[in-house]
Amino acid sequence: MKADLLVDAKGLACPMPIVRTKKGMDTLQSGQVLEIHVTDKGAKNDLSAWAKSAGHEMIDMVEEGAVLKFWIRKA
């Protein structure tokens, strides 16, 4: 999937994946897609909740080994 920006938050613990995601999202325009890579297992639910509360659209999530990848479209 094509993303406009990649945030690499692998190896970081809560709350850093959310903080990095927010900072990345702040640089995008409405409709653009942010791709996030994390290894923090808590981020699976956290990023979904974050996207929901901010009104963004969670497009996809895949697990590749220990790495979770997310694609979120900015509201």
């Binding site: 809560c14 709350p15 959310i18 974050w50 509360s53």
Partner: peptide, 10 residues
């Protein structure tokens, strides 16, 4: 953690 997570959620 709660404070930064909340701030990151606007």
């Amino acid at each position: 953690n709660i404070a930064t997570a909340a701030a990151a959620t606007e």
